[in-house]
Simulated assay, not measured.
Amino acid sequence: MSTALEWFKSSYSSSEGGQCLEVAYEDTAIHIRDSKNNPEDGPTLHITPAAWAAFTAAR
């Protein structure tokens, strides 16, 4: 990735951390990672914006 992603946590996450997902948006992909992992080399899940929309719409 040539541009640094802007990661954020959900507004539902507490300030204590530990059990949070972090998300970064791009036009062609949504990036998801576990906040407990090292952000430099931890695993990241990449999904399409359509898949993210379906996921967040499901309740």
Rank of each mutant, 00 (worst) to 15 (best):
S35Y: 00
S15F: 12
W7M: 10
D27T: 12
E6M: 13
E26S: 15
T56M: 08
Q19S: 15
A53I: 09
Q19L: 13
R59E: 15
V23L: 14
S2L: 04
A54Y: 02
W52A: 11
G42R: 00
T28F: 01
T56E: 09
A50P: 01
H46Q: 14
W7K: 08
S10T: 08
A57P: 08
A4V: 09
G42Q: 00
H31P: 01
A58V: 10
V23P: 08
W52R: 06
S35A: 09
E6C: 13
I30E: 04
A4P: 11
G17D: 12
A57Q: 11
Y25D: 13
E16K: 01
E22L: 05
S2T: 09
D27Q: 12
I47T: 07
E22M: 06
L21Y: 00
I47S: 04
W7D: 07
E26A: 14
G17M: 08
H31M: 02
S15Q: 15
T44V: 15
Y25A: 14
N37P: 04
E26I: 02
A29R: 04
G17E: 12
I32V: 06
W52N: 06
D41R: 11
A54K: 05
T44N: 10
C20I: 03
G18V: 07
L45W: 05
A58W: 12
A51E: 09
D27S: 13
H46Y: 07
L5H: 01
A4D: 14
G17N: 11
A51L: 05
K36T: 13
T56L: 07
S10W: 00
H31E: 02
S2Q: 06
A50M: 04
R33F: 03
N38L: 01
I47A: 05
M1V: 15
F55W: 10
A24Q: 01
I30M: 11
A53W: 08
E26C: 12
S2A: 06
D27F: 04
T48F: 02
H46A: 14
N37D: 13
K9R: 10
A24S: 03
E26H: 09
L21M: 08
K9F: 03
Y25Q: 12
T56G: 09
P43N: 10
A53Y: 09
S15H: 14
T28S: 12
T44W: 06
S14G: 15
T56H: 06
M1I: 14
T28E: 13
P39G: 02
P39K: 04
A50V: 05
A29F: 00
T44G: 08
R33S: 04
A29G: 05
R33Y: 03
Q19W: 01
K9S: 10
H46S: 15
N37M: 10
A50C: 02
A4M: 12
P39S: 05
R59Q: 15
A29H: 00
M1Y: 11
P49R: 10
F8R: 11
L45Q: 08
M1H: 14
T44A: 10
P43T: 08
N37H: 08
G42F: 00
D41L: 07
R33K: 11
T3V: 13
S35W: 01
S14A: 12
C20D: 09
H31A: 04
A50W: 01
W7V: 07
C20E: 07
I30K: 08
V23Q: 11
T44L: 10
R33H: 06
Y12I: 04
N38S: 06
P39N: 02
Q19M: 12
L5W: 00
A4W: 04
T44H: 09
N38W: 00
W52H: 10
P39L: 03
I32H: 00
Y25N: 13
A24W: 02
